Computed example of a mutant assay.
Amino acid sequence: MGAGKTSIGRKLAERLGLVFVDCDHALEARTGATVPVIFELEGEPGFRAREAALIAEVMQGKDQVVATGGGAVLDPGNRRRLCERGFVVYLQASVQQQLERLARDRSRPLLAVPDRRERLEALAAQRGPIYAGMADLPFNADGLAVATAAERLFTEVGSQWRRPEAA
């Protein structure tokens, strides 16, 4: 959360000549409800079920950069699909960087708590090892402007991933 998945992912997709898919935005478009409303009405389990179904569908595609929600990796099926069908980049950002980027953002249901730092630290402790364990490429985006991060990531991804040639 706040690592730059959407902003950097969009720029990276543009640079690679691929389609960009933001799973949270796609889910909102599909349901006609925002992520906070889905959380409110269905709770986190309902949201995660919708997210998993969408990821299963999206990962059947090709020629795309996909940004998932930060908690998508909690589902073993999502992890399997992402690792089998994609090149997984773990965008790393410090809790301090996340706090700065999310300072005015009130749309994150998991951050609707009195102590945002504590919540982000707990999420990092829970999710960090999962991200690290499945990443083809860990990338530290901490303190980088979006354009700089995307360009550096393009260079790193380009050295490890090659777009499949058209058949």
Rank of each mutant, 00 (worst) to 15 (best):
Y131H: 12
R117K: 08
R117H: 08
V113K: 03
G143C: 10
I130Q: 12
P114A: 12
A147F: 07
A147T: 07
E156V: 15
M134R: 14
I130Y: 05
F139L: 02
P109A: 01
D142V: 00
G128P: 05
M134Q: 12
A150I: 04
T155D: 14
L111K: 03
A150E: 02
L123V: 04
A125K: 08
A147K: 02
E118K: 07
I130V: 13
T155Y: 08
D142T: 13
A141C: 09
M134T: 03
A112G: 12
P114S: 08
N140S: 04
F154K: 08
P114H: 09
V146S: 00
R119Y: 05
R119P: 03
Y131G: 13
L110S: 10
A112N: 11
A132Y: 09
R116C: 15
L120M: 05
G133S: 05
P109E: 06
A149R: 02
R116L: 10
A132K: 15
S107F: 02
E151S: 14
G143A: 13
S107H: 13
A141H: 04
V146F: 03
P138V: 01
A132H: 11
F154C: 14
E156I: 11
T155L: 15
E118C: 15
D115L: 01
A149N: 00
P114K: 08
P138K: 13
V157F: 14
S107A: 15
F139M: 01
R108S: 06
P138Y: 09
A150R: 03
L111E: 08
V146W: 01
E121A: 15
P138N: 10
G133C: 02
P114N: 06
N140H: 06
L111V: 14
A141T: 05
L111H: 07
A125T: 09
G133I: 00
L144W: 01
D136N: 15
F139W: 07
P114T: 07
T155K: 12
A145Q: 11
E156Y: 08
G143M: 07
R108V: 14
G143H: 02
V113F: 06
L123R: 12
F139R: 00
R152Y: 12
Q126A: 14
A112K: 11
R127A: 09
A135C: 10
I130F: 00
A141L: 04
R119K: 07
E118F: 11
D136W: 14
N140G: 05
A149H: 01
E151G: 13
F139A: 00
E156F: 13
L110K: 15
L123Q: 04
L153H: 02
D136G: 14
R127F: 05
A141P: 02
R152K: 10
N140D: 15
A122Q: 05
L144F: 02
R116T: 10
G128E: 10
F139Q: 00
A122I: 10
A112V: 09
Q126W: 04
L153E: 00
T148C: 09
L120T: 06
E118A: 15
P109F: 01
R152E: 12
S107L: 14
V146R: 00
E121F: 07
A147G: 06
A150K: 01
A149L: 01
A125G: 15
A124W: 09
I130P: 04
F139V: 00
A125V: 07
A149I: 01
P114G: 10
E156Q: 15
A149C: 01
